[in-house]
Design a binder for these strands. Structure first.
Length: 199
DNA sequence: CTGCCGATTTAC
DNA sequence: TAAATCGGCAGA
């Protein structure tokens, strides 16, 4: 496995958000390898972004992790019932991250189907297949990403990202750019074109 | 301590 | 279109 190295995460956040598309999120769960190809991301940059939890230098127990050196995870609970996973980016002192909004499953099908729906992969309906991991809360459920993954080293062995996977073809698809989702409260920042996805 | 609210999902 | 559901955060 061609694991992404620590220095990748110190780059500019928008660059990382785009570069993450097509890479593979790997989760090692009870010794089993689960993998998904990243298809959708969003950037959050504290300095200028009212939608960022650490906007304008805000530091709380939850957000302090966003100020650390890139290369760790930031997982938080939203709406009382779903987790969202972010990749912390840039150098220590700058609060920024990339939210993972969608992946397509490439490895660990049965385990993931069971985690998500309590079914075997072959039992899933067309609709369930289509919607299995196409949202931030959904992919966290698929990969069992909860708050005990918060702060996890992305160069460690529990969860990390790879450029390529053995036996998996790297498909090249077109990248699209748009406004971010679900942040209507964020004034002018809601219109930033910081969402990136593969067709 | 109280009360509001959200980087979502799903079912009605 | 609305309900589910709870931790973080601000204000008192």
């Amino acid at each position: 496995m061609d694991k992404v190295s620590w220095d990748f995460y110190l780059q500019d956040t928008l660059t990382i958000a785009k570069e993450l598309l097509g890479k593979y999120l790997i989760r090692v769960h009870d010794g089993e390898v689960l993998a998904g190809r990243i298809t959708e991301t969003e950037a959050y940059i504290g300095d200028i972004d009212k939608a960022c939890h650490a906007y304008n230098g805000k530091v709380t127990n939850r957000t302090k992790i966003l100020y650390e050196n890139g290369g760790i995870s930031y997982v938080y609970l939203i709406y009382g019932m779903y987790y969202c996973m972010n990749v912390v980016t840039e150098r220590e002192g700058k609060a920024a991250a990339v939210l993972l909004r969608g992946v397509s499953v490439v490895k660990g099908f049965d385990k993931i189907a069971n985690m998500r729906y309590g079914l075997n992969y072959k039992e899933l309906t067309k609709v369930q297949l289509k919607n299995i991991s196409n949202g931030p809360g959904k992919l966290c459920k698929c990969f069992d990403i909860t708050k005990d993954i918060n702060g996890e080293d992305l160069c460690g062995s529990k969860i990390f990202i790879c450029n390529s996977l053995e036996g998996i073809e790297n498909i090249k698809l077109n990248m699209k750019v748009s406004k971010r989702i679900g942040i209507d409260y964020a004034k002018e920042a809601k219109d930033f074109m910081w969402r990136f996805y593969l067709e």
